[in-house]
Amino acid sequence: MDDPHENPGVSKEIVELPAPTAWPLVLALGLTFTLAGLVTNPGMSILGGVLVLAGCVGWFREVLPHQHHLAVPVKVQKLEFTTIRTKIARIQVDESHRARLPVHTPSVTAGVKGGIAGGAAMIVPALLYGLIRYHSIWYAVNLLGGAGVAGWSNPTAAELTHFRLSALIFATIIHVAGSLLVGLLYGAMLPMLPRHPILLGGIIAPLLWTGVLHATLGLINPFLDERIDWWWFVASQVTFGLVAGWVVAQQTHIYTEQFLPFAARMGLETPGLMEEHDREDGPK
């Protein structure tokens, strides 16, 4: 590293900096002494009060009507910097380098729309299950909404078949929020698997989700676990996924951002893989 002190070409300038001052210290001491008097001696608080007054007056005079400055003469010169980095090796890539990345994808909002449609559709098998098995459409509603009803612990199967307003409200909130969030997640995942939205949303995701839930719900909420019929659960999930996937498939596709330089999207410096600003001819 070069020693900048040895470099020639020195010029002189003046820089104004805040003037050194003792008043902040005086004020801090005053406040501390004022409070310290509570546990030591009242005289300490009186001394603190005096210091606070002096500190405030001194500080005000320091900044009013104009702040005090210190004119610092500086000597300016050009600094020189070196880098230990060796020469950049640029990676040579051919035209097909990014060919396998998707150029088009459904938008994230398509996922949300799919979530809304899927959420509406999955109500049918859920209510059908309650109707066939317990002769009541409220069973599935109560089962879902019961999680949010404080004080309703371990209801019997018979209790779950009766209408309960609070459970309906909570079930609606949970279902709507869940459908939107799953739709959003679905939309965010689509660029990774854009070609088969119905397969992804209708089969793979419901099976994965059901598997995870089946494996863990017994630990998280054994009561809920006991009352879920997993075959009907899978049917509801698949209904959600198929409808959501179909809705997504109907939406207009948009360009992915894959044609943009990776560095621009992720802040990654990768010499040789980056396209430059003067290339404005859009996606290839």
């Binding site: 002190h5 050194p20 000597k75 300016v76 050009k78 600094l79 020189e80 910097f81």
Partner: peptide, 30 residues
């Protein structure tokens, strides 16, 4: 091993160290 040396518009204080530091008490006050 450096492969380039580039100028930069920076600045340094070239005041000699003996002028920067005064007595011990002046340093504490500073």
């Amino acid at each position: 091993m450096a492969d380039s040396t580039l100028p930069i518009g920076g600045a340094i204080d070239l005041t000699p160290q003996s002028e920067v530091y005064g007595t011990w008490l002046e340093q504490v006050h500073d």
